[in-house]
Write a protein that binds this DNA or RNA. Structure first.
Lengths: 354, 354
DNA sequence: CTGTTAGCGCGTTCAC
DNA sequence: GTGAACGCGCTAACAG
């Protein structure tokens, strides 16, 4: 029984017109109980499924959301996509998923592809939300979209994110309170992204507030070879006055850095403390557990879908939704031996509600 | 400039018919250089993008691949989807992504949704490829699909996978060669999946071949709370003759188990060795590194797309493609103190080429 | 080489 | 309450 079952087949079987079948299926107009039953029976017998294509062509709207992310390999993005998928499914929508693989220029191409598919809206994480021709295009064509993870400076751009600067500020203050004075800042790939910048800003602000010297970010490829990280870190940590702690711009990088430091013979956290950013699940499964900023990545995906639907269906204005983050204490972050004041390890500092 | 730009708009602007515009865009028939240039100019000026919907309605084929996986949260599936996405993009296709979240019954619903969108084909990882009404339906309707990670016993079902049984067999033999005699088998969620079964079979076969007693699988929810894992493991490892090693049915579980064992006061690998399955990237980033079966997850996604396209475009027959696996030595797996024979740690045993 | 035309599957006016 | 007819954007078959 191949798939040549169209609305016409059903109409013939039910002995009525295609218009009536359409009415029954979509409950778009009242129908008599008799014909209603016949149509439903025919639908069931034939295994008819209305073609989304025919429907889309007519209404010029699909039940599809386009997604653009840098990479699925990073659990942060995988988690937010999981949230999007679940939220979209609740609303009878599916996800058209694309990834740039950090390739510059891919954003524009992917968005065009998705727009050509008449997606109902877009959810994207871009390198830089501030100056982005692709987003300008979407604005111009009036196609609804929501950013995730990005913090657009340009108001009027919808986004769901955490306050990256505030988060690293809080995290850095915690490290300072634990007695650390020289805190290295290690940035992962894509260091030019707007969120990476915001994170470094928070770090710098906290350091300066404490009268300490902020470090220039050291750029590393996260989850590259641990040996190469070891090499890159050797110079920094075997110098005269080495850092006692490292703040990493994301969790994948942090886990990798922990490994590299150990390869170099340093104990974590005894010799060097390490903290990450994101709150990926695995950070809690390794030993010692990773100190990090816990961000609600899955929820971010869900909220992004909710916001997008509000914009599409209710004409809601684009807005930036800040989600709360949590400082998650972990075994990789300990007070220095020469701590000026003991740090309270158990504290969970939470951002103010959005 | 809203999006009311259709092929007709372009035709008017270029001063030709819509058929000619179509020909220029798709290079489906020769056109004169003059009209060609005019059309391209019009396309560029108007920012025209042919609607995939109109095209799909006509050809009854979309440039879209439907994907069904259990969850995006597991890096194994995230990696294979990343491979699919990249391979699909090379072929000008996009992915319609759905996830069951391990909810029984979701498979059927998601497949119906995807079929209603006229996907060109499907790529799926199902709980059980052996008895599966959804796959029977696809067979009946002659919709091309490829399984990933599943090992269908039913020949005629296309799949890309590793030989799970052979892999755990080899891994178990390595552990036995390292002197382990009591090797626990810890299974993650979804223990009823066909691949989980095959993995346990390989373990059991190796144990029996060595004249050892295979353990009944202990089922744990992977990446659940580490404390709860600790509880679940306490009974087993604090018994009279505790296992000296644990074989975990996947890497996420293995990393979690390492944490739980440490919580219980065991040293890994000094007191208990641990091995996983999958070869997720993070296994190499933690310390000690995770001993595991390295499976080419990303490649599996790429190959699945390639196979699907061969079936769609060249009418290739469905076939099962076995990809090679590698035993990856890791710090979590060490010889027992009472080893009968020293194990050669450096060996990398590779499966025979497919 | 190019234009005209007929649908693809569906929702939606209009009449009745 | 129901049916006939049109058109959404596009490709393909057929004329010219």
């Amino acid at each position: 029984m191949p798939r040549i079952v169209t609305i016409r087949t059903v109409a013939e079987r039910a002995g009525c017109s295609i218009a009536t079948v359409s009415r029954v299926i979509n409950r778009s107009a009242p129908t008599s109980a008799a014909v209603d039953a016949r149509v439903r029976a025919a639908v069931a017998e034939l295994g008819f499924r209305p073609s989304e294509i025919g429907r889309a062509l007519k209404t010029l709207r699909t039940r599809t959301l386009g997604v653009v992310i840098p990479s699925l390999t990073n659990p942060v993005f995988a988690a937010s996509v999981a949230g999007m998928q679940s939220a979209a499914r609740e609303r009878q929508h599916t996800l058209l998923l694309t990834a740039t693989d950090y390739e510059p220029g891919a954003e524009a191409e992917l968005v065009e592809t998705l727009v050509a598919q008449n997606v109902a809206g877009l959810i994207l994480t871009v390198a830089d939300a501030a100056e982005n021709a692709t987003l300008d295009l979407l604005d111009a064509e009036d196609i609804p979209y929501v950013l995730v993870h990005n913090e657009p400076p340009h108001p009027g751009r919808a986004a769901v994110c955490v306050d990256n600067a505030a988060a690293t500020f809080a995290l850095t203050e915690t490290m300072i309170a634990a007695g650390h004075r020289r805190i290295a800042y290690l940035a992962g790939r894509f260091a030019t992204s707007d969120r990476a910048r915001r994170r470094h800003e928070g770090y710098r602000a906290a350091m300066e507030k404490a009268g300490l010297e902020p470090e220039v970010p050291l750029e590393l490829d996260y989850l590259g070879d641990a040996p190469s990280h070891a090499e890159a870190l050797a110079g920094l940590f075997r110098a005269g006055a080495p850092p006692t702690a490292a703040l990493c711009s994301n969790d994948l990088l942090a886990l990798s850095v922990v490994g590299a430091l150990r390869t170099l013979g340093f104990r974590v956290p005894d010799d060097v403390s390490v903290a990450g950013f994101d709150g990926i699940a695995l950070g809690g499964a390794v030993h010692p557990t990773l100190a990090t900023v816990d961000t609600p990545t899955r929820l971010m995906g869900e909220r992004a879908v909710a916001l997008l639907f509000a914009m599409i269906n209710e004409g809601a204005a684009p807005r930036v939704e800040h989600l709360p983050f949590t400082l998650r204490p972990g075994g990789t972050l300990a007070p220095t031996a020469r701590a000026d004041q003991p740090a309270s390890q158990g504290d969970r500092i939470t951002s103010s509600p959005p």
